[in-house]
């Protein structure tokens, strides 16, 4: 079976969801970081490496994640594979980021 789950050209599908959605801050950050990692100075991750990431992380995950979630999850997988950081280091950074997000910041007068 060499047909990937992302290779959907010609499949039956319902009506096109003709909607316009805003481009969110975190989505912009994902795209910006992807560009920086792939730029001429860093050359750390090509677009094809990123695609390989979300084409191989499993169909269930692919189908339930949004476009930008797929991209960041794939980016993280590739960076861990390249030993830029470990899963444990990422988990610690996520815990820190979550704490920053969840700690209410009082308004300054």
């Amino acid at each position: 079976m060499t047909r990937g789950y992302h290779d959907i050209g010609g499949n039956a599908a319902g009506a096109i969801p003709i909607v316009e959605l805003p481009w969110l801050q975190w989505e912009k950050q994902v795209e910006a970081i992807r560009n920086l990692l792939g730029d001429g100075t860093r050359r750390m991750m090509s677009l094809d490496e990123l695609r390989r990431g979300f084409e191989s992380f499993g169909e269930d995950k692919y189908k339930k994640l949004s476009f930008y979630r797929r991209r960041i999850e794939a980016m993280i997988d590739v960076l861990i594979e390249k030993e830029v950081f470990t899963r444990e280091e990422l988990d610690a950074a996520i815990a820190d980021a979550r704490a920053r997000w969840e700690t209410p910041v009082p308004c300054q007068p």
Binding site: P17, L21, Q25, V84, I94, W101
Partner: peptide
Amino acid sequence: DGHEPLVVEDEAGNIEGQILVDALQTLL
């Protein structure tokens, strides 16, 4: 329902995405 669902994050998913990308950015 005649419409193919567009997979988008709900509010919690967007917060999760923000946390994830912030964590990644911090590490980098």
